[in-house]
Structures are given as C-alpha cells and as structure tokens.
Simulated assay, not measured.
Amino acid sequence: MRIEEADPKGLIRESYRIEGITLGECRSIFVDWALSLPVDANTKEALRALIAHYGMAEPDHPMSGVMEQGLMAPENPKRKGGRAARVQGAV
C-alpha cells in the first residue's frame, strides 16, 4: 500500500513533525486518521505501511506506540451491549 493511500490526509505524517506531541494527542490524531480512511480500506495493511515508513525511523515517538497498539486490535470488532445483550432471544 502506498503511503498516500495509508494516510490520505497526512495526519500521521504531521504527527511525527509536531515537536513535543503527547501520547493523548497521538491517540486523538489516530482516531481522526482511522475515520478518514475509506470504508473498504484494509486498516491493518495501512498501519503496517505507516509503521514501516515512519515508525521504524522513530520507534520512541508516541505515535509509533499508538500504531503498534492499533495492530493488536481485533480484526472485526463487534458491538457489545444494547438490548440484544440484555435480553436473551432478542434480536
């Protein structure tokens, strides 16, 4: 995957340019990045490309850690809760 596809708005790129960026700010940028990806994008593939491009050069940067944690997320997170979780047999 090309970097332009993995980071369509350049949010990850810019996070590495911000001097003194905090972990909390990186997490916020990460959420914005995830929401900016096309619906059919392979998030894990995009993260691997971004880690290879930015994270390897700066492994101690807070965004590198945030992206590594993103790789550990489940493939297809399922919504938990709602009426179906409280009432057996409810759909």
Rank of each mutant, 00 (worst) to 15 (best):
M1P: 05
M1T: 07
M1F: 10
R2F: 14
I3Q: 14
E4I: 01
E4D: 13
E4M: 06
E5I: 10
E5D: 14
A6P: 11
A6Q: 15
A6K: 11
A6V: 10
D7S: 06
D7P: 03
P8T: 05
P8G: 11
P8H: 14
K9T: 02
K9W: 06
K9H: 06
G10N: 10
L11A: 05
I12S: 14
R13W: 14
R13A: 15
Y16Q: 04
Y16K: 02
R17D: 10
I18D: 04
G20I: 07
G20L: 09
G20S: 07
I21H: 00
T22D: 13
G24I: 05
G24P: 05
G24C: 01
E25Y: 00
E25R: 00
C26G: 03
R27Q: 12
V31S: 02
V31Y: 01
D32G: 07
D32A: 10
D32E: 12
W33D: 02
A34E: 09
A34P: 00
A34Q: 09
A34V: 06
S36T: 01
P38M: 01
P38V: 00
V39E: 12
V39R: 13
D40V: 06
D40S: 07
A41M: 03
A41K: 04
N42S: 09
T43P: 03
K44P: 00
E45I: 13
A46N: 05
A46L: 03
L47K: 04
L47Y: 00
R48Q: 12
R48Y: 11
L50G: 04
L50H: 08
I51P: 03
A52Q: 15
A52W: 13
Y54G: 03
Y54R: 01
Y54L: 09
G55E: 08
M56H: 12
E58C: 04
P59T: 06
P59W: 13
D60E: 14
D60Q: 13
H61T: 02
P62N: 11
P62F: 15
M63S: 01
S64C: 15
G65V: 04
G65D: 11
G65P: 07
V66R: 01
M67N: 09
E68P: 04
E68K: 00
Q69W: 11
G70S: 09
L71M: 10
L71D: 03
L71R: 06
M72K: 08
A73S: 09
A73N: 07
P74E: 14
E75A: 08
E75N: 05
N76R: 12
N76P: 02
N76G: 00
P77F: 15
K78R: 12
K78W: 15
R79K: 13
R79I: 13
R79V: 11
K80C: 06
K80G: 02
G81H: 12
G81N: 14
G81R: 08
G81Y: 15
G82L: 08
R83C: 08
R83Q: 08
A85F: 14
A85T: 07
R86A: 15
R86L: 15
R86S: 13
R86W: 09
V87S: 08
V87E: 06
Q88C: 02
Q88P: 04
G89M: 07
G89P: 05
G89V: 02
A90L: 05
V91F: 06
V91Y: 09
V91R: 07
V91I: 09
